[in-house]
Amino acid sequence: MAYIALATGFLLILIGLYGALTHSHILRMIVAFTVANTGVNLVLVGVGYMGGRTAPILDKAVEVSAAAQRIIDPLPQALVLTAIVIGLGVTALMLTYAYRLYVTRGTLDISRYTELKW
């Protein structure tokens, strides 16, 4: 099962990367970036998964004494939780800059931003 998640995550990263590099519309590039972001999260969670085990929450189903044999690795999950929240912050920042570019230049097409072109 982990293989499926990993493969999907890798494919999402590639799709997102391709989209971000080929599109010339800034909003489309940001959309592609969020797809790649989801892919990275999926890969990280997939690496933490172990077959036949359950979520790292201790209750009646998973006693403390048996926890080490029953739960999956909680550390990647904590990291991905952080990554998702930061991802929204980054996306909001990118969108804000896109809006600002639009206000100053009246276009979101990067082929029209020619100041640094040579």
Binding site: P56, L58, L81
Partner: peptide
């Protein structure tokens, strides 16, 4: 804490 992810975070 029962939720280990919360405890880590």
């Amino acid at each position: 804490a029962a939720n280990i992810v919360s405890a880590i975070i």
